[in-house]
Each structure stands twice: as structure tokens, then as C-alpha cells.
């Protein structure tokens, strides 16, 4: 079992503390992320009103004491919408990240171990992968009615092939490794091999990938809203608030600036955490930094 020790330390070593120590930016990223999550969770108690309440008499008001971030073309309170928007955007980001890594992991593991499944499924994945992801997501959204769930599914489908490919690559590599061969030769069961050797070593790159997917999903959601193929417009996602306000960006820049800053900060935070994770989890890169 000596061979297993070569790779196993990854699992035991605590990665977060060193990552934060080496990259102060990771701490910043985590801090922003926690703040956003708290804001999303506590939205109703942060001085907000109903983010859906329309009121044409107070439409397009500039930020003021009554409306901290102003109001939009329907007279809805942008502050409330931005805070509630955190829920939607994070839901999309995290939802897509979770779903696509889970699915990608499953498909990647199956195709990594089964030649027949590999031949069939990877052809389909190759096909899906050759359609640019945003294009694929738009096409999928055109099929269904606008809802947060459908946005998550559409973006997930366009991300899955990349995760599957990554996992399959790692699995194929690991299968040739002496410690895996040894485990199989020693009569360790398939599931146990999977659990002990394959999964732990696949998780690291997948986790890093998941953070990038989370970040890009939030941006894609905004792009879908911009094109008019995203979440329902009354739902306050950051993308929707911006898409709604884009016609007025010279007259009422706050309609884009507030949600834009929140979106960019969140995506930035996720990316920073992702970079930190990658450096911490990838011993080859970590060595030099």
C-alpha cells in the first residue's frame, strides 16, 4: 500500500489554511462570498420591500433615502431586487456547479471504466461539446418556458460534457497507475477501489472546475436574460435587472451599476477562490508558488 501513500496525502492535508495563507486574495474571495450568501439568506430583514411590487407612479426614480438604489421602469425597488437577486444568481451558479459536476462525475466515471459506454456516450458528449455553450443554452431555453429551474438545466447541459471529459481523462490516467492496479490485483472490490482511489483523486480537479463553472454560469444567466431567453423578467436576478435597465444606461446608470457590481464581485470572488483551490490542490503548481 505504499503506492497509495503517494497520492493519498492530498486527502488528509488540510488545503484551506495554506491556500489562504499563500493567497490573501482567497481570503478576500471567501469573505465576499460569505457576505453575498448572508445577504441572500437575510434579504427579507435588510430593509427591503416586495421586489415584485410594481408602482408606476414612482418609476425610474434616482437613488434616494426612500429607494437606496432607485426604482426601475415598473417602479420596483432596485435595492430590494438586487438583494433578492443574490438568491437567484447564487442559486443558478451553485445549482449549475453542483448538477453539472455530479452528472459529469457520473458520466466520466462510467465512461472511464466501461469501453462500450465510453464509445457511445463520449460521441454524444463530443457532439454536445462542439456546440458553443452559450449558443446551446440559448437554443435549449428557446425550447422551454422561462424559469430558474430551466435556466439551471440549460446551462448544466452545456457544461456537463466538459466535466465528463475531465473526469474521464483523470480516471483513464489513474487506471494505469500502479497503486490502482495493485488494489485491483489485491482483490479490492470495484466500488471500494472507486471510493478509495479514484474518487479522491478526481475530486480535486472537479472541485476546481466546479468553481469556474459556478462563476461562468452566473455570467451566462445574465447573457441569457440579455437576449431575452433567461429567467422570467419579473424574477429579480442580477441579469434581469441589468437586461431590463440596459435601454436606460445613459439616463439611469444605476440600473446597471448596482446589479453589475454585485454580479462582478461575486463572480470575481468565486474565481479567486477557484484559483486558490487550484493552487492548493494541484501539487505541481503549488510547489512553485
Amino acid at each position: 500500500m505504499a503506492a497509495a501513500e503517494l497520492v493519498a496525502p492530498l486527502r488528509r492535508r488540510h488545503w484551506l489554511a495554506p491556500a489562504v495563507r499563500r493567497h490573501p486574495t482567497v481570503a478576500v474571495g471567501l469573505l465576499i462570498l460569505v457576505a453575498m450568501l448572508a445577504m441572500a439568506a437575510l434579504a427579507p430583514w435588510l430593509g427591503t420591500s416586495d421586489p415584485l411590487a410594481v408602482s408606476p407612479i414612482r418609476r425610474l426614480r434616482f437613488p434616494a433615502a426612500a429607494y437606496w438604489f432607485g426604482t426601475d421602469a415598473y417602479g420596483r425597488d432596485v435595492y430590494s431586487r438586487t438583494l433578492y437577486g443574490a438568491r437567484v444568481s447564487l442559486q443558478v451558479g451553485l445549482g449549475v456547479a453542483l448538477l453539472s459536476t455530479a452528472l459529469g462525475l457520473a458520466i466520466g466515471l462510467v465512461t472511464g471504466f466501461n469501453r462500450f459506454a465510453d464509445a457511445v456516450i463520449m460521441r454524444v458528449m463530443d457532439g454536445l461539446m462542439s456546440v458553443p455553450p452559450v449558443l446551446l443554452a440559448i437554443a435549449l431555453m428557446a425550447l422551454t418556458r422561462a424559469s430558474i429551474g430551466n435556466v439551471i438545466i440549460a446551462i448544466t447541459i452545456s457544461e456537463v460534457p466538459r466535466v465528463a471529459r475531465l473526469v474521464r481523462g483523470v480516471v483513464l490516467g489513474l487506471r494505469e497507475q500502479p497503486f490502482v492496479e495493485a488494489a485491483v490485483a489485491a482483490g479490492t472490490g470495484f466500488l471500494r477501489t472507486l471510493q478509495r482511489h479514484i474518487l479522491p483523486n478526481t475530486l480535486a480537479p472537479v472541485l476546481v472546475q466546479a468553481t469556474y463553472i459556478c462563476a461562468s454560469a452566473m455570467i451566462t444567466e445574465a447573457v441569457l436574460s440579455f437576449i431575452g431567453a433567461g429567467t422570467p423578467p419579473q424574477i429579480p436576478s442580477w441579469g434581469n435587472i441589468m437586461a431590463d435597465g440596459r435601454s436606460y444606461f445613459q439616463l439611469r446608470p444605476y440600473l446597471i451599476i448596482f446589479p453589475g457590481v454585485f454580479l462582478s464581485l461575486t463572480v470575481l470572488a468565486v474565481n479567486l477562490v477557484g484559483d486558490g483551490l487550484r493552487d492548493a490542490l494541484d501539487p505541481r503548481l503549488a510547489r512553485r508558488l
Binding site: A215, V223, F226, G239, M242, I256, N271
Partner: peptide
């Protein structure tokens, strides 16, 4: 560059 939607 990754954090800003292209339309903004």
C-alpha cells in the same frame, strides 16, 4: 475579464 458580462 471573466467577471463582467460582455454586454455591460
Amino acid at each position: 475579464g471573466f467577471s463582467l458580462p460582455a454586454f455591460v
